[in-house]
């Protein structure tokens, strides 16, 4: 464990806290992409199958359960719970996620670490996580302006993988046989997708944390 990875996990947890607060206290999922939340649920449920046999630390196992539970709860609330479900707009949030899931599944089959079923599913989850934010970013583009809490949510989510990039650099230089090309590639793509958002987020928050983010 190193500071970058710890801060990355904390940023990821923060993104869950912000989103759960927004949809439970604000009683609205406006501006939140259910498609992205569904993709995250698929990512965590497929990646953490090893919860039952790969016990690397209590910290890891605990957070795996937390991430599966939170992502499932978010999807449940936005899909089924009133009044949140009435604030979700299927016309706006209509990114064809099958065009994300399909290629990631093929990539997971072809490019993985050990050619076992779990490794293929694991690689699929890594590739899918890299592109899971796309429906959310498309929704924000359509709306032009980003509600305050939503902007903090997306920023925390982008920071999490950005901090993981630093963690991988740190581990590469401090550990002798550390090699994880799959997550390095996917994590770089994932963080790259946020760069445009981060630019507008920084520009808008310079004048004060609660100003809305405007996307062109």
């Amino acid at each position: 464990m190193n500071i970058f990875r710890f801060l990355g996990d904390m940023s990821h947890i923060l993104s869950f806290v912000i989103l759960l607060l927004k949809i439970t206290q604000g009683k609205s999922a406006a501006g939140i992409s259910l498609r992205t939340q569904e993709l995250y649920m698929i990512v965590f449920c497929s990646r953490y199958l090893d919860l039952f046999w790969n016990f690397s630390s209590l910290y890891n196992s605990f957070l795996k359960v937390v991430f599966i539970a939170c992502s499932s709860a978010i999807v449940y609330i936005i899909r089924f719970k009133s009044p949140q479900k009435d604030t979700w707009n299927p016309e706006l949030d209509n990114f064809p996620i099958q065009y994300l899931i399909g290629p990631c599944a093929v990539a997971g089959l072809l490019i993985n670490q050990d050619w076992t079923p779990f490794e293929m599913i694991w690689a699929f989850s890594i590739y899918l996580e890299a592109v899971a934010i796309l429906p959310q970013l498309f929704l924000l583009q359509k709306q032009g302006e980003v509600e305050n809490l939503t902007s903090h949510y997306v920023a925390a989510l982008g920071a999490y993988r950005g901090l993981y990039l630093m963690n991988w650099v740190y581990r590469y230089f401090t550990e002798d046989d550390y090699l994880q090309r799959i997550v390095w590639f996917a994590g770089t793509v994932q963080t790259g997708l946020y760069i445009d958002f981060f630019y507008h987020y920084y520009q808008s928050k310079r004048g004060g944390l609660s100003r809305p983010v405007k996307l062109p």
Partner: peptide, 10 residues
């Protein structure tokens, strides 16, 4: 060799 056995990251 990729250290795939020990997946110690989330």
């Amino acid at each position: 060799k990729e250290r795939s056995r020990l997946k110690d990251e989330l």
